[in-house]
Structures are given as structure tokens and as C-alpha cells.
Simulated scan of single mutants.
Amino acid sequence: MPFTSLHRRRFTGLACAALCAAATPFAWASDYPNKPVKLVVPYPPGGPTDIVARVVAQKLQEQMGQPFVIDNRPGAGANIGAEAVARSPADGYTLVVATTAHAINPSLFSKLNYSITKDFAPVSQLTSGPLVIVTHPATPANNVKELIALAKSKQGGLNYASSGNGQSTHLSAELFSASAGVKMAHVPYKGSAPALTDVMGGQADLMFDTMLSSMPHVKAGKLKALAVTSSQRSPSAPDIPTVAESGLPGYEAIAWNGVLAPAGTPKEVVDRLNAELKKALDNPEVKQRFEAQGFAAAWNTPTAYAGFLQAEVDKWGKVVKASGAKID
């Protein structure tokens, strides 16, 4: 069969299509972003995650020349926002700010409509920070060893407040109880504010809470801080010892934020976002603003963040199972 002009045109068209397909990833990288990017925050405005997201969005907007728009979608233990992003187009224009809750939820909720490890492409961690153990100032325990002794000696044990079932403020305390070999009764509240109010009022014995919420009350003398839950002392409160150094070696529980894109997002887009996040998180102003919230900037590669995320899912899965916590 002779090679006609029609065949030539078809061959040329196919060759162009192949070249275009091969060039697509590079086009993604060079052209991205060419329109506003939505950053979904699965919590209400004003909280720690929202504050972190707005700092990062502002810096990315300055660096990349396109608006990074915050979209608050709270509800269902941070699952509503995460599920919405998991179902979004995998083009890099809809991202979610994930938290420790998203590593807890797979084992806590009987049914989730998304998988945190399969339906997302990890971009980078953003922050890492401890919780702080706080009690009423009159509580007869001034460190972790004394708190453990008090819990063992008090008939019926101690009771601890949390910001809700399955939150890091709940499961950090459960991890503490299991590690220390003590029993403490859980009293869940609808948020940190009412929980802290009852700790300050003496209705609850203690709480594992974020530094952002608790430290203003500690500085005002309304709460007593016993220890932070990270492996290292917090730069925001260097005088407060860690749980591990003050009576419970090996204990660690951190609160973190990170960025996830829908699974299937082009690698070139993920890598571009990762590089821009590194630049943003290295910025001294950003570091300072995070430290004011009790967080440290915590950039890592997509691969490292994926490994970290899986380790967190595994770790908290064991804690949830031991605690017996479950949400239908």
C-alpha cells in the first residue's frame, strides 16, 4: 500500500499527539498555577489549623503569583473537608490542610468515604508542635512523676477533659494513661474553650491541649503547665519540660499540619508545590509566626511526608484500639 498524503497527515498527527502527551508533565510544571488555588481547611476560621493555613497561603500567593484562597469546611471530625478534596480534580488547584486528626480518623470512624493514604498525594508537612498538660493551679502535682503518683493514689483516678472524642487532646491522654499504667476518666467537650473552663474551675482534673489555647491561661496564672508532649522542649516555652524527660521516657505525641493533593495529581505539580513550600517555611517571618502559635515549621519531601503519615496512622490506630474509642 503506497504511503499517500493522507497517511502522511495521519502519521504527522499521531507523532504530534505523542509529543504533546510527552510534553504535558513539563507544561504542567511550567504553567502551574495559572488560576487561583483553593486551600481547604477542615476546621472553622480562627483555630490553629486555620491560622497556619492563612500564613502559608499568603506566602505561596506572593511567591507563585496566583491567589491561594482559604475555604473553611468544618465538620465530622475534619472529614467533610478532606472528603471534598479527595473527590476533587487531580490538577493541583484544590488542596487540603491535613492534621493529626486525619491520621486518627481511619481507626476511629466505623466508615470513612475516603482513605487518607490512598486518595491523596502527600505534598509536605507544614508544622509540628506539642500539646501541653495543664491542671488547676491548686492541683497537688507539679510534674509528670507527681501526676502519675496522684492518679494512682486517688480513689477513682483522675478525670481529664478533651476537645472531643477522637481528637489529639483525647488520644494523647489515652497514650499517656497506657504508658504510665494509670486509669483516667475521659470527659469530652465540644471544643477546647469549654474544656479549659472546667479545668480552670476544678470540674476536670487536667487536660492535654494545644499551646495556642492553653498558654495564655498559664501565663495568667489560671492554669499550671506540667509538661509538653513532644520529644524536645518547645521554643515557645523552653522552661516547660517534656513528658519523656520528666517521668515517662519514650512518650511522644505531636500535633501537626500538612498539605495533601488529590491522588493522581501530576508529580511535577506536587514537586513544584513542595519546592515553594520549602521556600515559604524557610522564611524567618513564617517561622516566627508559627512559633507564636506553639508550632515549628516542618517541611519534608513528598516521600518523607508519605512515610510520616503512614507511621502516624499506624501509631494512633493502636492507641484508638486500646482506648476502645469508636464513632459510627
Rank of each mutant, 00 (worst) to 15 (best):
D328L: 06
A244C: 01
A227H: 05
S168Y: 04
P262E: 13
R54E: 10
S163T: 12
E83P: 03
S162K: 04
V270W: 03
V269Q: 01
A304C: 08
G129V: 03
M184Q: 04
G191C: 12
A185K: 13
K152T: 03
A261I: 05
E312S: 13
T301D: 05
L95I: 03
L150A: 04
P238E: 13
Q61W: 06
P45N: 12
R10M: 14
D119N: 13
A204I: 11
A22L: 14
A84D: 14
A255D: 15
R87F: 11
M64V: 03
L196E: 02
G164V: 10
S192H: 13
A121P: 03
A255M: 12
K38N: 15
S177W: 00
D282R: 07
M200G: 04
S323M: 00
T197Y: 07
T49S: 13
G65F: 08
L273F: 07
A22E: 03
P122M: 02
T229Q: 05
A297P: 01
K287S: 06
T24A: 15
K154R: 12
A76M: 04
F109G: 03
L223M: 10
V96Q: 05
Q66W: 09
V269P: 05
A76Y: 04
G13M: 14
M64Q: 06
I51E: 03
V182S: 01
A78M: 02
A178E: 13
K219Y: 06
L226M: 08
E245Q: 09
A227F: 02
M1T: 13
A23E: 01
F68Y: 08
N143K: 14
L277Q: 00
